[in-house]
Computed example of a mutant assay.
Amino acid sequence: MQDNKPPKETTKFLQHSSNQEENAQVLFWYDQLGFNTENSDEIADQITFSAKERLMQQLILDKKRRTFRLWSRITAAAAILLVGFFAWKTNYSPQSTLKDATDAQLAAVKPAKEHAIITLETGEEIDLDQLAINESIQIGEIKIIKNSKGEVSYINSKTGEAQMNTIRVPKASIYSLTLSDGSKVTLNAESKLTYPSAFAGKDRTVKLEGEGYFDVKHTSTDSRFIVETQKQEIEVLGTKFNIKTFQKEENSYTTLASGSVRVKSNVQDNLQILKPGQQARTDNGGKLTVKNADLEKVLGWTNGQFVFDGENNGETFEEISRWYDVDISYQRNSKNIEYVGKIPRNLTLDKLIELMSYAGLEVDANIDHHNRIKLQIK
Score class of each variant (00 low, 15 high):
S173N: 08
K291Y: 11
A132E: 12
Q2S: 12
D283M: 06
T282L: 05
D309R: 03
F306P: 03
L187D: 05
L70E: 12
I226A: 08
Q376L: 03
R372E: 08
L82Q: 04
I226P: 07
A200M: 11
K184A: 08
Y195I: 01
T10E: 14
F246Y: 15
V290E: 00
T67A: 01
D222R: 13
Q138H: 02
L193E: 01
D325Q: 10
K8L: 14
N19T: 12
S153G: 03
T37A: 14
E296A: 07
K335S: 14
R224N: 09
P344C: 01
K202M: 11
K217S: 15
E121I: 06
N270T: 12
I226E: 10
S357D: 12
F308Q: 04
T282G: 03
K231D: 14
Q95S: 11
L70W: 01
H16N: 14
Q268C: 03
K335R: 14
K89L: 11
E125N: 15
N346F: 00
A189Y: 04
D3G: 13
V152H: 07
T122F: 08
I328V: 12
E161F: 03
S93G: 10
Y253T: 00
K275W: 04
P344G: 03
I273W: 01
T194F: 00
D103K: 14
K64L: 09
T229N: 10
G300I: 03
W301L: 09
E141V: 13
Q130N: 12
D294S: 07
G212L: 05
R224L: 13
K207D: 10
V298C: 00
S96N: 13
Q58E: 09
H115G: 02
T229R: 01
I126R: 00
M1H: 11
K231I: 12
T289C: 06
Y358C: 00
D103V: 06
A116S: 13
T10H: 09
R262F: 02
F68R: 07
L82A: 04
D31E: 11
A104Q: 15
S40V: 02
E228C: 00
I137S: 04
E209L: 08
T10L: 15
M56C: 08
D325R: 07
Q25A: 15
Y92S: 04
N284H: 02
H370M: 10
T194M: 07
I137T: 11
E125Y: 07
S321A: 15
I174K: 10
I174D: 05
E114L: 06
T10S: 13
N270S: 15
L237G: 02
L361W: 06
T102K: 13
I243E: 05
F49Q: 06
V152K: 02
K231G: 11
T102A: 12
L237Y: 08
T178R: 14
Y339H: 13
I145K: 04
T302E: 15
L177Q: 10
